[in-house]
Write a protein that binds this DNA or RNA. Structure first.
Lengths: 326, 326
DNA sequence: ATGAAAGCGCTAACAT
DNA sequence: ATGTTAGCGCTTTCAT
């Protein structure tokens, strides 16, 4: 079932068939209809690799995530999937396993097979990302690099809200539980927290870095207790849930003795115990927006919308409360 | 950077370069080394679509899931990703949104772009799956169709364990909270449950079908209370967690008044409240095995291993307990 | 063991 | 508006 079969069947040249199918505007109406009818009858489906070879367009976009099992990405992946589907694109999913080296390698191998890349939480240094931009349309998520289009969830603003929340509850010693060291979002959140604390004449402390996983959260909990702080803000919910878990095991009351605030509002944040106070993140929207930016970049339209910032807000649940009297 | 550049650089013909790169065994050792060295220097990366066009192999496998945001698939996707990567394959992720029609359509469009398909929890009728097999290597997960390779997690056996567990705790009226009606696994679990109950001279009842989501679980909880049962086994953890949630809202004590057992042991099952008694499922392994079966099928080796069954076991947590006295 | 040449299915000049 | 022709980068006969 190729374009040639349709050509033979309808008596048109293959090129006309090609046009009728991929740029219907450029052929006569009756021609188009005859060809499209034949295509339908013969159950014709275009051969993507062949099309890619001659046109350079693969109708495929790669989505790189640092860890597929991190629930944070699922909304993102789904948002991207939806938007891609609507535009007739396929999604190649790539797990970089939190490794900059692997990320680089995979990026170079997919380069030829995709029309663009969405870099979600890239672990690459900024210059590397800029380098890729030269070869391929790129949109980053939760990551900024000069000249690279991005959609970032405004967690720094959320972190400020979280700090205000904790301070209003009487907390004075709040620690930041840091995530992976090469995460851009991690630095952004830490900076926001320092600023917010400073505004109240308080110093923020920091422990970590920790991997973005529940297991790391357990280790973090112990380190946290050693600091004597009455509250913490964790890089993400995975870590926060790990902390909750470990604190529970050690019989530490949350929020009675210590308050825990997470980030991202992932699946589970609302039903862990106690339910986690966290920063809601419009993840699915981020995925959709990233894709639409990537695709309109392909079409070279709208030079606006280079860097989109999506709002967050603090979702207060039961893991945060009044600071204990000391 | 094409094969021709390397040919020009080394003085060999393009065909020799091709061989040296893709079937190193078929060229002289020194030739091979010279060519490989040049490829490395020039930073050559093969063009996948071009290779696909001439050889028919795309080095890509499609993974179809019914809903990307279902945590059940996290592990599966990761397992598949790992195994594919190791074999030099890319992963195309496709969300079928629980719709047989969409599944069919997407399948026909990816057909030409992939070397095989993993159908995780397909919503297609058996004959449709068999039809696809004629065009493309297929491995199903948690789904059986005559003549189609599959890896299924032995939840039916797990369901039996769950029934024994509940009966030993004094439960006599246990209801099955059914999942999506076109889910094969759903039927398999229900059948297993009936059998297990019958063994003790008990009749199983069933409510549903419900969608495989937490929201559905809330509706299910209400229906469940109307039955007067003292325990339930839910199609999956998503539903079970939804039930737990709703029961909590309504002030029904779990497991004091009613016991809840889930299925799959997804992310969150261990930290919801109360922690969920559920069937552990080796999901990541399922993903790996499915891929390895798919790829060895490509190579037409080992006619064995057509249908792999992975074991489950009951993981008892706090959502199940003694039946209440009546 | 290596080279020459054809062609995979499609698109994109170019020609008509 | 449609047809002709030449590739895209690679693999694969078929020769040598």
């Amino acid at each position: 079932m190729t374009i040639n079969d349709i050509a033979a069947r309808t008596g048109f040249a293959a090129s006309t068939v090609s046009r009728a199918l991929s740029r219907p505007g450029r052929v006569n109406r009756v021609t188009r209809e005859r060809i499209q009818a034949a295509a339908r009858e013969l159950n014709y489906v275009p051969n993507v690799p062949a099309r890619a070879l001659s046109s350079g367009r693969t109708a495929t976009v790669a989505v790189l995530v640092s860890d597929v099992t991190n629930p944070f990405y699922f909304g993102l992946i789904r948002g991207a999937q939806h938007e891609l589907r609507a535009a007739g694109y396929a999604q190649m999913l790539v797990d970089t396993e939190d490794s900059p080296e692997l990320e680089t390698r995979l990026l170079s191998t997919v380069r030829q097979s995709v029309d663009g890349v969405i870099l979600a939480a890239s672990r690459l240094p900024g210059r590397a990302i800029i380098g890729i931009t030269a070869e391929l349309p790129v949109v980053t998520v939760n990551r900024n690099a000069p000249g690279v289009r991005s959609v970032v969830i405004d967690s720094p603003d959320g972190v400020m809200q979280a700090v205000e929340h904790l301070i209003s509850l009487g907390h004075r010693q709040v620690v930041y539980v840091a995530g992976p060291s090469c995460s851009w979002a991690n630095e952004a959140r830490w900076r926001a927290m320092r600023t917010a604390m400073a505004k109240h004449g308080l110093a923020a402390t920091r422990i970590g870095p920790f991997g973005a996983s529940r297991r790391s959260g357990s280790a973090a909990a112990d380190a946290l207790l050693n600091t004597g702080a009455t509250a913490c803000i964790a890089f993400n919910d995975l870590i926060a849930i790990g902390i909750l878990r470990r604190l529970g095991e050690r019989g530490v009351d949350v929020p009675g003795e210590i308050s825990v605030v997470g980030c991202d509002d992932i699946f589970g944040a609302d039903f862990c115990s106690p339910p986690l106070t966290t920063l809601a993140a419009p993840v699915e929207q981020a995925g959709r927006v990233a894709v639409s930016m990537l695709l309109e970049q392909n079409l070279a339209v709208r030079a606006s919308r280079r860097n989109v910032i999506l709002p967050t807000h603090l979702t207060v649940r039961q893991s945060s409360g009044r600071a204990p009297r000391r």
